Amino acid sequence: MVFSERMNQPNEKRQLVKLLMEKTQTSESTVYRWISGVIVPPPIKQKIIADILGEPIEQLFPKKK
């Protein structure tokens, strides 16, 4: 499941947004832009997100063809 799909699970979203904000030292608006796909997190933050979610980076942030 890609990052935006995973984050749109209602039971996880708010808690994960707070956790991602804290762990990536990023604003709430930036995290929501990642979720909506407006912007892609930098690679170092992708690694943090993947570690938190327990998913491979390649699955959460597939390269666009």
Rank of each mutant, 00 (worst) to 15 (best):
residue 1 M to R: 07
residue 3 F to H: 07
residue 3 F to M: 12
residue 3 F to I: 14
residue 4 S to F: 12
residue 4 S to Y: 13
residue 4 S to H: 15
residue 4 S to G: 10
residue 4 S to L: 11
residue 5 E to K: 13
residue 5 E to A: 15
residue 6 R to S: 15
residue 6 R to V: 13
residue 6 R to F: 15
residue 6 R to G: 08
residue 7 M to R: 13
residue 7 M to V: 05
residue 10 P to C: 12
residue 10 P to N: 12
residue 10 P to I: 12
residue 11 N to W: 14
residue 12 E to G: 08
residue 13 K to A: 07
residue 13 K to V: 03
residue 14 R to F: 06
residue 15 Q to R: 14
residue 15 Q to G: 14
residue 16 L to H: 07
residue 17 V to R: 05
residue 17 V to A: 09
residue 17 V to K: 10
residue 18 K to M: 13
residue 20 L to N: 09
residue 20 L to Y: 09
residue 21 M to G: 01
residue 22 E to L: 12
residue 22 E to Y: 13
residue 23 K to C: 03
residue 23 K to M: 08
residue 23 K to W: 06
residue 24 T to V: 13
residue 24 T to D: 10
residue 24 T to G: 08
residue 25 Q to S: 13
residue 25 Q to V: 11
residue 25 Q to L: 10
residue 26 T to S: 15
residue 26 T to F: 05
residue 27 S to T: 14
residue 28 E to W: 07
residue 28 E to I: 10
residue 29 S to I: 06
residue 30 T to N: 09
residue 30 T to G: 03
residue 31 V to D: 01
residue 32 Y to P: 05
residue 33 R to K: 13
residue 33 R to M: 04
residue 34 W to F: 04
residue 34 W to Y: 15
residue 34 W to M: 01
residue 35 I to M: 09
residue 35 I to P: 02
residue 36 S to Y: 09
residue 36 S to P: 05
residue 36 S to T: 07
residue 36 S to I: 01
residue 36 S to K: 14
residue 38 V to T: 13
residue 38 V to Q: 14
residue 38 V to A: 14
residue 38 V to G: 08
residue 38 V to R: 14
residue 39 I to M: 02
residue 39 I to N: 04
residue 40 V to G: 00
residue 42 P to G: 05
residue 44 I to L: 08
residue 44 I to T: 12
residue 44 I to G: 01
residue 44 I to H: 09
residue 45 K to M: 02
residue 45 K to E: 09
residue 45 K to Y: 03
residue 47 K to R: 12
residue 47 K to E: 10
residue 48 I to R: 06
residue 48 I to H: 01
residue 48 I to A: 02
residue 48 I to C: 04
residue 49 I to R: 07
residue 49 I to K: 01
residue 49 I to E: 01
residue 50 A to V: 07
residue 51 D to E: 15
residue 51 D to P: 01
residue 52 I to V: 15
residue 52 I to K: 09
residue 52 I to G: 08
residue 53 L to R: 03
residue 53 L to C: 07
residue 54 G to C: 04
residue 54 G to H: 02
residue 54 G to W: 05
residue 55 E to W: 03
residue 55 E to Y: 08
residue 58 E to H: 02
residue 58 E to S: 12
residue 58 E to I: 00
residue 58 E to W: 05
residue 58 E to Y: 01
residue 59 Q to F: 02
residue 59 Q to M: 09
residue 59 Q to H: 00
residue 62 P to A: 05
residue 62 P to D: 08
residue 63 K to M: 10
residue 63 K to E: 15
residue 64 K to C: 06
residue 64 K to V: 14
residue 64 K to Y: 01
residue 64 K to D: 03
residue 65 K to T: 02
